[in-house]
Simulated scan of single mutants.
Amino acid sequence: MTNNSDEAVSGFEDRLQALLDSDDDGLLDVPVKPAKATAADRLERAFLEAVEFRRAHGRIPSSSTREIAERKLGARLDGILANEEKITALKPLDEFGLLEPGAVPESIDDVLGGDDLDLLVDDSGLLDLSGLPVRKLPESPDSVAKRKKCADFDQFEHLFKAKHAELADGTVTLAPFKGLPTVQEGRFFVLGGVMLFVAEVGETKTLVVGGKPEPKQRLRVIFENGTESAMYRQSLSIRLHEQEGQAIVRTGIADDEILDADTESGHIYVLRSLSADPQIAGIENLHKIGFSTTSVEQRIKNAEKSPTYLMAPVEIVADYRTYNLKPSALEHLLHRVFAEVRLDATQVDKHGRHYDPSEWFVVRRSVIDQAVNMIVSGEIVDYVYDAQLGKLTHRT
């Protein structure tokens, strides 16, 4: 029995080996389990897709096109170009010079013409609209918003300086962008490292996008480099999402708390400086106009240590409580009304840094009261402040 069993096993092994030897097509080969892709493998694969696109089309993939597949490749390449370590790792694979730095712009016209950060043009969405039966021309003012030089940037420049100072002293902080509802008039955001200010939100218009009607609102967006754009509200939201933009919010206050006009309350305050500096103390009717979502007393703590308060204690001369009205928007309007009499002075903080306080104005308290009431009533649109007369006068 043992010999017969051994012979049977031996015969089976011979037949099995013969079967394996006859498998010319490899049908019986055991598949090799692929090795798990590493982060480096994925990075190389993503870059090689961009290389193949360059080989096939003769150009670098764009991150601003409406063609979704190309847009993804362009966005990946943009991310690679922003990381020196990735550039170094991928250099051996760069047969077309995709990782070479671009030419340094020689003038402001070159900067405005390049638009590498997609800040200058609004192509109104992520969808590929090439298949639609009707398509607006690129130069149509309703389809594309090009950035241009801001003619009245002097009216906004101080706002950016103030926000940078508040970021430095911790009054405000950077927070993740929370979506379209937070894109409101008076808000500050950071997109591609550039601070921007939503100065105006236009009327809602219904446009047909992808065959469906959608409400659209044009914005007036001011950038801290002196340019502006009339991009759509949705377009700004898309860019903030895509480029991991950030919102500038009051420290310790939730983003949604300061945006809900139905429940939000705050303070517009007017301060008088108690500085012993003769140059400050000698200025009659010098007032600081600001806003706070906390108590004004809390807001002005340690005023003598902050250049925002002229490095001196302050006295509260007015505290306007706001209901169903953004105090930041009211503050901005007041600053616009009294822009002509803004204090021109430079302060030095405790670190030796120079700072131009932007919320101090040489204007009578009674005129400030009048301006607040006229803003609330809507009458302010028909008035301007006459510095020589020291009063609000009707527009002619």
Rank of each mutant, 00 (worst) to 15 (best):
T2M: 11
N3K: 10
A8G: 04
G11H: 06
L16C: 00
L16D: 00
L20M: 00
L20P: 00
A39M: 13
R55V: 08
A56W: 09
S62I: 07
T65Y: 02
L77R: 07
D78N: 12
A82Y: 10
N83H: 14
E85M: 15
I87D: 07
I87Q: 07
E106R: 14
E106Y: 08
S107Q: 02
V111N: 07
L112F: 03
D118W: 09
L126D: 08
K136A: 09
P141A: 01
V144I: 02
R147L: 08
A168H: 14
K178Y: 04
P181S: 00
V183G: 01
R187T: 09
A199F: 08
E200Q: 13
E203T: 12
T204Y: 02
K212W: 07
P215N: 04
K216N: 07
S229R: 03
R233C: 02
R239P: 05
R239K: 10
I248E: 11
T251P: 13
D255S: 12
D256Y: 06
S265F: 14
V270E: 09
L271T: 06
D277E: 03
P278Y: 01
G282C: 01
I283G: 01
H287M: 03
F291C: 14
I300A: 04
K301A: 15
N302G: 13
K305M: 14
D319E: 05
R321I: 15
Y323V: 14
L325T: 08
A329C: 12
H335I: 02
E340P: 07
E340H: 05
L343G: 01
D344S: 04
A345P: 08
A345W: 10
D349Y: 04
D349A: 03
K350S: 13
H351W: 14
H351D: 14
G352T: 04
R364N: 13
I368S: 04
Q370V: 06
S377Y: 00
D386A: 13
A387K: 13
